[in-house]
């Protein structure tokens, strides 16, 4: 276990562990509703948008976080509106947004001289980029999301299962959609520095899919997805430290392995 204490002796690893755990909890909670409402790709679209926003903010010398948050929140409203609009092709809109944001971000960085940006850390994340301010912001976010789930989980279930029925019994589905859009945006923006624009959406999707292999109750899936998300993140971070692999990629591979094992276990049990 000495290696574990050695790992935690580095302050950047402490920050990465705490921020990662907090983001994992938020991502798992918001992921259950997004995945079950077939909106999984929204996380992907928003993470690419966040990349574009971070790149432009850096080039223009703005504070990246304060520039990216409003941009991604606005994009999330746009994407949710499109995905709920029967006349528009929601999937295509998300794909367009993803590709366009990525392209704009790359162009902004490559055409600007004298700006030293490590493109890889934006795309694939870096434990070194996490500061204490990220940890505190993540803590505030996780408190807000957990409180939302404690006090509104029944309504979140109703909206996730059957939006038309939820509207009919007076639940303000548009308000909940807006809250989820903001939370999803913040999870993406806060998590992008750790896992990267290309990998952060996996933190939203994998835990729910893994939890669904073991439980057929909504409440249990919510709790199980949080547990899987947290455990898989810790495993990914530790493995990445031990074998000196990129943290974001390792966390995703651990989640992928967990999903494969979960499916095999489920098939055997059936």
């Amino acid at each position: 276990m000495t290696w574990f204490f050695e790992m935690l002796s580095y302050s950047f690893m402490q920050r990465a562990l705490i921020a990662g755990l907090l983001i994992s909890i938020c991502a798992a909670l918001v992921g259950v509703s997004l995945v079950l409402r077939k909106n999984s790709m929204i996380g992907d679209g928003l993470s690419h948008t966040a990349f574009g926003a971070f790149a432009i903010a850096t080039v223009l010398n703005f504070a990246p976080l304060w520039f990216a948050v409003p941009v991604v929140v606005i994009a999330s409203f746009f994407v949710l509106k499109m995905s709920g609009n029967k006349k528009s092709n929601g999937d295509a809109m998300v794909a367009l947004l993803s590709a366009s944001s990525l392209a704009v971000g790359c162009m902004a960085i490559s055409l600007t001289k004298g700006v030293n940006i490590d493109l890889n850390s934006y795309l694939f994340g870096s434990v070194l980029s996490i500061g204490w301010s990220d940890v505190w912001l993540s803590l505030i976010l996780v408190i807000a999301v957990v409180l939302l789930y404690i006090f509104a989980h029944n309504r979140i279930f109703a909206i996730t299962f059957d939006e038309d029925f939820a509207k009919a019994i007076g639940i303000k589905t548009d308000l909940y959609d807006a809250i989820f859009a903001v939370i999803c945006s913040l999870v993406v923006v806060f998590g992008i520095r750790l896992l990267g624009a290309l990998l952060i959406s996996s933190l939203i999707i994998f835990p729910t899919l893994i939890a669904m292999q073991f439980s057929k109750s909504f409440g249990r899936v919510v709790i199980a997805s949080v547990l899987f998300s947290v455990v898989n993140f810790i495993l990914g971070l530790v493995i990445s430290y031990l074998i000196a692999s990129p943290t974001g990629a390792t966390v995703v591979v651990v989640n992928l392995a967990a999903l494969i094992i979960a499916r095999i276990v489920r098939a055997i049990r059936q």
């Binding site: 309504r155 299962f161 038309d164 109750s217």
Partner: peptide
């Protein structure tokens, strides 16, 4: 209200009681 169809995911994890209980939310 019983809508025409439920657009939920085909593998939506929910017990019968969870669904019926949600009817009382109003």
């Amino acid at each position: 209200f019983l809508p025409q169809d439920v657009k939920a995911d085909l593998n939506f994890p929910a017990t019968v009681f969870e669904i019926v209980l949600s009817g009382t939310l109003g």
